[in-house]
Computed example of a mutant assay.
Amino acid sequence: MSSGALTSDWLPSFEAVPRELFVPDRIWPGIANGTGQHPAVHRSEDPEAWWRAVHSDIPLTTQWDDGRHHGDGLGTTPTSSNSMPTMVASMLRDLDVRPGVRVLEIGTGTGWNAALLAHRLGDADVVSVEYDADVARGARRNLERAGLSPRVVEGDGREGWAEGGPYDRIIATCSVLSIPPAWLAQAAPGAVIVAPFGTEYGGEQIVRLTVSDDGTRAVGRFTGGSAFMRLRQQRTQRPPFADYLHGVPWPADGVRSTTTLSPQDTGEWFQQFVIGLAVPGAFWRAERYDDDAYTLWIYSRDKRSWASADYERGRTEYEVYQSGPRRLWTEVESAHHWWTTHGRPTHPRLGLTATPEGHTPWLDTPNHPIPRQP
């Protein structure tokens, strides 16, 4: 790959296991830097467009709405895909496999990643877990067509697959909000875990963790940005927005203040990620108006707190309202202030410690945890 994501040790596997063997006849091509999808492409109707999409460095949506969506239109939420090749290659590079290691994959999808691993390591040393039975059946067919047969298990990815452990490598092709305890329990001493790690607030980065010899923790750094579909059992259920005002017209009991921090400076993907590390249990949405103006709404998962910050182009001071036991805009502002005063660190300086009880993000070393709000 021209991007340099594909290292020479993986080249034979990518050549032997071409992507087209793992792409269905109908796909929705994505975009390289974002989460949007283009209209459906059918191999039978436009084989050149299908081939061009398959051989582009873009993700390909293969399922919407957990399989409930039908037809060629866009569904509500993409729920299975064939990942963009550079992301597949970079995560496999982070995994650092070698002959003799045993790998657990979470999220089989179309089976392409499992096929690359099986070609490199052998069928017997690769186990892949897929929650969706239809997706798992499709992956098995694809793998059989490629002449490969790693173990594909239908099950809850949070639980891994203890029968096949311990594993020297664990890789997730779906994003997680926390590292499931079962992954630590099924990891061999010194095992490597590679997973897309997201926050409820937004943003996501690939994390590469090394498991301690006693299996009680995994520690490592973030290696780069990502935008994967969430592990189904870790999807967040967001309450209706009307629940926060309790039938009282806005601003209800909201307390007014102003801020010099522009809502625009909190909305980039990585900014959302850093804020999410420091502000747990919160999420946002934007209500947009004319002339690029909008209201940034922030809500707590427990429905007890909300905040709004109004953005208008050309202003240097912005109106804020906050309600509830948490002052959510203040928390976001504090997280952003921490980030800027520490030199706006990017992923190489940020890391994570995961234990069965939870996770702690940190800056530079595990001894410097990121302050959690409130």
Rank of each mutant, 00 (worst) to 15 (best):
T76W: 14
G4W: 02
R372A: 11
C174R: 03
W329K: 02
P325E: 09
T86H: 10
W269S: 15
G160H: 00
V126E: 01
Q186F: 06
E287F: 07
F222K: 12
L328E: 04
A133V: 12
T7L: 06
Q272S: 13
D46T: 13
E204A: 08
T79P: 05
W10Y: 02
W112S: 00
S308M: 08
R145K: 09
D9H: 09
H246R: 12
V129L: 01
A218K: 03
A40T: 07
Y131K: 14
A218T: 06
I58L: 02
H70P: 06
Y318W: 09
V192F: 00
V17C: 01
G147C: 10
S178I: 07
S128Y: 05
P239F: 15
S44Q: 14
W306S: 08
G351V: 03
E200V: 13
V23C: 05
E163N: 10
R217N: 07
V219D: 15
S212Y: 00
D66C: 06
P29W: 03
H337I: 00
E333S: 14
V320P: 03
S175Y: 00
R344G: 11
V101H: 03
I298P: 07
S178N: 10
A5R: 04
D310P: 07
V127I: 11
T216Q: 13
L143H: 04
P59Y: 05
D132A: 13
W362R: 10
L277F: 00
I106Q: 01
G324V: 05
Q233P: 15
G30M: 11
R256T: 09
G111R: 04
A188I: 00
A53V: 06
Y244K: 10
V176H: 00
G155Q: 11
E144W: 10
S262P: 01
R19F: 06
V127L: 08
I275A: 10
T258H: 11
T110F: 01
A124C: 07
N113Y: 02
L104I: 04
V103G: 04
D96C: 00
F222S: 12
S2L: 11
L350Q: 13
S56C: 07
D168Q: 04
D46R: 04
Y311Q: 05
D125Q: 09
D253N: 11
V17T: 03
L209N: 02
L104N: 03
F228C: 09
E163R: 03
H69L: 04
I171W: 00
V274Y: 06
G155S: 01
T365H: 12
E45V: 14
P356C: 03
G358N: 07
I170Q: 01
L328Q: 04
S257E: 13
H38M: 15
R301W: 14
F197N: 09
P18S: 00
V320N: 01
E15P: 08
R141Y: 05
T223N: 04
D65T: 11
H342S: 08
E45I: 14
T7Y: 03
R221Y: 12
F197Q: 09
V101C: 12
P374K: 13
L231Q: 10
T295R: 07
L261E: 13
N82L: 15
R313T: 14
R26V: 15
Q233G: 15
W338N: 08
G247S: 05
D265P: 06
Y318S: 02
A187R: 04
D168W: 01
D302K: 08
T316A: 10
